[in-house]
Design a protein around this nucleic acid. Structure first.
Lengths: 221, 221
DNA sequence: CCGCGCTGAAGCGTATACATAAGTGGGGGA
DNA sequence: TCCCCCACTTATGTATACGCTTCAGCGCGG
């Protein structure tokens, strides 16, 4: 694999996982030494991170991991609303019902996974990610998909910040189920509205979760 | 200005203006010689163009100016629909009425500009761009704005491809006017629907215009 | 005492040199 | 004569070196 690609993925993972906390400075030489590659691929990686919005230029000379304030989370969800409602609408119009029928089964089984500990949780998230993938494929719109991908990057950060609340995840599964049913039925309007509802609930939970975490005195997971 | 920045802007302009036609290969050495800079800044410029979607990797070794097929134009408008409706909604909620009142005046005067030849046309487009800017500012959502900016890049290509039809531009001005009025009135729903209508009409015109151009035997403007 | 300017250093942007991989053309063998 | 393999060419990926910009700290002048 290309060194620039490895550097990018490594840095991205670390930012998403919170290893590199918001506000951390990303200097070329430092990261080049740390990652064991030269500055040129690091430069490319940092440029991509900035384009992704995961890093922000604090001044002309210093790049840092971008903050994840409640305000920016709200902004993220406003963007996701726009994109995911449209994606759901298009998917409902253009979907292959068979592919979503399979997802319907998996999602129906999903809540039970949450009793299976860490392994089950991973399978649960795999199912949710598979739903994203199927919707992407069904929209048949590369531009929309690429915008969605960018938004999901940031969602991954939020997901990690919010506590994994089994109760919330069970509710989320049933919200997802409704979206899938709407898509299978070819009901674009319902698919869009169900997506809206899901995002609304998800945002509400994320904000509450982060607020409670902060009042815990910034406890680190 | 930085060499990589100049290279990027130069290449972007040439792609948007059609100087570099879709399908043209973008080789590092060739462009470096042509633009009078070294390969490194060209590399960065090409990476940005690819991230923008203005260039596509045809194979592992060859990057080329991306195609602008009717299908991709439809996809672009589906994305813009999602983004601009949401932006209009948010702008209607958060706007400063005074700033849009000024735009309302300028847009009312816009149709007359179209009789003033090239200079007037430029002023007309400046007004439309100002509307975009005001909406961006009013949404108060950096993520949404950055997604919009990316979509507008591609719109600029489409705009150039479509013939400048005064009749269509006059209609577009009145569509914009309705959007502005809705924003001033704080009517989020109307702002979104008016944006949808505008995009629908704009897409219809763009597709018809391109089709007629192609049946002209690919006449170059 | 405050503000402007200088000087040093550190980091970034660019160029160039080198390594590597892929594609192509030619030659040899079947 | 055709096909396959090897070598060469070319372009990309990576590393390093150099020069310039910028920022911080200190000193001098008002």
């Amino acid at each position: 694999m290309r060194a620039s690609e490895r550097a990018y993925q490594e840095l991205r993972e670390e930012i998403l996982d919170g290893v590199l906390a918001p506000g951390t400075a990303l200097a070329e030489v430092e990261q080049a030494n740390r990652l064991g590659v030269s500055r040129t691929p690091v430069r490319e990686a940092l440029a991509r991170l900035e384009a992704d919005g995961l890093a922000t230029a604090a001044s002309a000379r210093v790049l840092q991991v971008s903050e994840l304030s409640p305000a920016s989370i709200v902004a993220l969800y406003e963007l996701r609303e726009a994109l995911e409602e449209q994606a759901a609408r298009l998917a409902a119009t253009r979907r292959d019902p068979a592919r979503f029928a399979e997802l319907h089964e998996r999602l129906t089984a999903a809540p039970q996974l949450l009793d299976d500990g860490d392994e089950g949780l991973r399978t649960y998230y795999d199912t949710v990610d598979a739903l994203d993938g199927e919707i992407d494929a069904a929209t048949a719109n590369p531009m929309l998909v690429s915008a969605l991908r960018s938004a999901r990057l940031h969602s991954a950060r939020v997901r990690r910040l919010a506590r994994h609340n089994p109760e919330r995840l069970r509710a989320a599964a049933s919200e997802h189920l409704l979206i899938v049913e709407a898509i299978i039925a070819g009901d674009a309007s319902l698919a869009a509205h169900a997506s809206h509802v899901h995002l609304h609930m998800s945002l509400r939970h994320a904000l509450a979760s982060i607020e409670s975490r902060q009042s815990d005195g910034h406890r680190v997971a």
